[in-house]
Design a binder for these strands. Structure first.
Length: 179
DNA sequence: GCTTTAGACGTAT
DNA sequence: ATACGTCTAAAGC
């Protein structure tokens, strides 16, 4: 069978303090996948590789990887992204999630309601498949009782990211800001 | 407070 | 058709 004309993805990585971040960028220049911080460069790259059949590694988009890193450490970054090929429902969910402002959280229920659905669990499922953690801030989505909830990279990581954004967490629960 | 139970619904197999 | 999921609400301990 002839060839695989699947779009080629360029993978770039960035390292800080022993943590490796990777992004996969399409030909059009959109980030289509990013990894959470990993302990090795290879792990970070593998995370991207899994989602594409054709790729090359280059430092061309290192700045994007760096921005992902910055977001992890609580810097407010704007990315121009394009939510990739997925079902409508999933897309709506991710779009809604990407609207959550820096330093704030929403619950799964609120996300469901925002798109006129009662599918709370499906929202969780959709978010779990978020290809762009940190960029699409799924870490800002928490349970209705304000406990942190799950996360692809583990609850600890979710908590850390939220703290880096200045969100206060006490005993695993989001603490409303007092000002 | 914690655990179980049933409910709701998109997705993967 | 069946099972599962980053869930919720209600009920019982």
């Amino acid at each position: 069978m002839s060839k695989n004309h699947r779009a080629e993805v360029t993978i770039s990585t960035y390292e800080l303090d022993g943590l490796y971040f990777a992004v996969g960028v399409s030909k059009e220049g959109n980030i289509i996948k990013c990894s959470l911080p990993k302990e090795s460069k290879q792990n970070a790259i593998n995370e991207i590789k899994k989602t594409c059949s054709s790729f090359k590694i280059s430092n061309k988009y290192q700045k994007y990887a760096k921005n992902v890193c910055k977001s992890y450490y609580g810097e407010k970054i704007h990315f121009n992204i394009d939510i990739p090929d997925m079902g409508d429902f999933q897309k709506e969910v991710l779009q809604e999630v990407s609207k959550i402002p820096y330093g704030e959280v929403r619950t799964y229920k609120q996300i469901a309601e925002a798109i006129n659905s009662k599918a709370y669990r499906a929202v969780g499922t959709a978010i779990s498949k978020n290809p762009l953690p940190l960029i699409i801030p799924c870490h800002r989505v928490v349970k209705s009782d304000l406990s942190v909830g799950d996360f692809f990279g583990g609850m600890e990581m979710k908590k850390e990211i939220l703290k880096n954004e200045g969100i206060c967490i006490v005993k695993g629960k989001i603490k409303k800001k007092v000002d």
